[in-house]
């Protein structure tokens, strides 16, 4: 079975074969063999065969972005998406570490109430500058700009309740 996945923003081609717990997996031409066993519905025990049987555990969880899976490991969390097509240009920055490019929205990750909008349309803003204050979980939380740019639209009024995932301000 061949598929293309995107891991932390980079497209990778993967080929999986095997059964009965022993699988051969080729990622971008690099082959590895694993002994895989399900611990529960979303947790796998993997023993990497070949080089000393390294034992690892991985857990699958939801990601805020639909279609993506957050893979939890002791070393951290990697976000992986299964793409249907062949490897293509990724829409997200490489490695997920850099600052965002292009038109960006300031989105609230949690439901709450807009306490204050700190900018006006036309304002020049710097990356990580406070844009909107949202009250949630007993705290006032400052949502910051993902990039240097200019405020082009403000999509909420002060005092308005907002749901998680709601775009609040557009920065170009």
């Amino acid at each position: 079975m061949r598929l293309t996945v995107e891991a932390n923003g980079r497209a990778r081609s993967v080929d999986v074969s095997g059964r009965d717990g022993i699988y051969r997996i080729v990622i971008d031409g690099v082959e590895r063999e694993v002994d895989a066993a399900a611990v529960d519905d979303t947790t796998f025990s993997l023993i990497c065969l070949g080089s000393g049987r390294a034992s690892r555990e991985v857990g699958l969880g939801p990601s805020p972005v639909p279609g993506e899976t957050a893979v939890h490991m002791p070393a951290g969390v990697a976000v992986v998406r299964v793409l249907s097509g062949p490897p293509g240009r990724s829409g997200r920055g490489g490695g997920g570490a850099g600052l965002a490019q292009g038109t960006q929205q300031v989105v609230t990750p949690m439901p709450g109430r807009v306490v204050k909008v700190l900018v006006r349309v036309g304002d020049e803003v710097r990356a990580r500058q406070g844009i909107v204050v949202v009250e949630a979980m007993k705290m006032e939380n400052e949502l910051r700009s993902p990039k240097d740019g200019r405020v082009t639209r403000i999509l909420v009024d002060e005092g308005a309740p907002v749901e998680a995932g709601r775009p609040l301000v557009v920065i170009d």
């Binding site: 079975m1 598929l3 990778r12 993967v14 999986v16 699988y23 997996i25 895989a36 991985v58 899976t69």
Partner: peptide, 11 residues
């Protein structure tokens, strides 16, 4: 490993 896990689940 993350890619392996997701690929195995797809598999």
């Amino acid at each position: 490993l993350a890619i392996v896990a997701v690929a195995l689940q797809a598999h």
